[in-house]
Amino acid sequence: MSYHLNYLFLGVFFVGACAVPVLALGLARLIAPRKPGKEKLSSYECGVETSGDAWVQFRVQYYLFAILFVVFDVEALFLFPWAVVFREMGMAGLAAMAIFLGILALGLAYAWQEGVLEWD
């Protein structure tokens, strides 16, 4: 019962947590002055005229790191349940996870060797 109650609590809390920023923004909207102007609303670029669009392509290296992240994040997904029952599995469990992690570590070492991790 308390298991479900916890999640019910989180649901109620979500409503409350949303109320905090919404109330703050609403109150500020009532109090704060509103005098928009063309110069004021142009996007900030160190004082000079805005040139070009900000929504542009960006370097591919971000995606390389994102792929590495996905690999290791999925691994962490396996790691946590394994870690909870680690004591029951003992050495055999360690060996199994060591092989799994070893393969991933090899992948990381390969990426390192290939210069993927160099940000230049």
Binding site: L27, A28, R29, I31, A32, P33, R34, K35, P36, K38, K40, L41, S42, S43, Y44
Partner: peptide, 9 residues
């Protein structure tokens, strides 16, 4: 609270 909220163009 009393600062203007700006949304850029």
């Amino acid at each position: 609270f009393t600062k203007e909220d700006l949304v850029p163009e």
